[in-house]
């Protein structure tokens, strides 16, 4: 059932394609106003800069993330969900706040990327104890 919850949520969010997208979104949920360079964010999250750049584009394109930059500044000011907080965000943050929950989302995203059909039946071990937010 929890696995189904994860898939339903990913269907609603729609824009998330890669585990890095998820981790970046969770990072900005915790740090909704960050003045950082993309190198620094990549280092904090443990992804290659190129991969992180793609994920930044995903969130910006989806109007979840707004950025301000200046020619002389290495860092950009990233503002997350400044205008409207998406209604799915608390559920996502709640479910992904545990190791098992985050892994469930990551596995689901990996499966989707590889074109595997979503396993909505029996939940994998790591999300058995998941509770809705």
């Amino acid at each position: 059932m929890e696995n189904e919850q994860v898939h339903r949520l990913l269907d609603r969010i729609a824009v998330l394609r890669d585990p890095c997208d998820l981790d970046l979104l969770l990072f900005f949920a915790r740090h909704p106003r960050a003045l950082l360079s993309s190198d620094q964010i990549a280092a904090l999250l443990g992804y290659p800069v190129e991969r992180l750049g793609d994920s930044l584009d995903v969130l910006v394109t989806a109007d979840l993330l707004f950025l301000t930059e200046k020619p002389n500044c290495v860092a950009r000011l990233y503002v997350f969900a400044d205008r409207v907080v998406p209604d799915w965000l608390p559920s996502l943050v709640g479910l992904a706040s545990t190791r098992a929950g985050r892994l469930a989302f990551r596995n689901a995203l990996e499966d989707r990327r590889k074109g595997k059909p979503p396993s909505r039946g029996s939940p994998p071990d790591q999300i058995r104890h998941l509770k809705p937010a």
């Binding site: 106003r33 003045l35 950082l36 360079s37 620094q40 290495v74 860092a75 000011l77």
Partner: peptide, 13 residues
């Protein structure tokens, strides 16, 4: 406004 940054960026800023 609560802004998260690094010391390096802050000094440069």
């Amino acid at each position: 406004k609560i802004i998260f940054t690094t010391r390096q960026v802050f000094v440069q800023e």
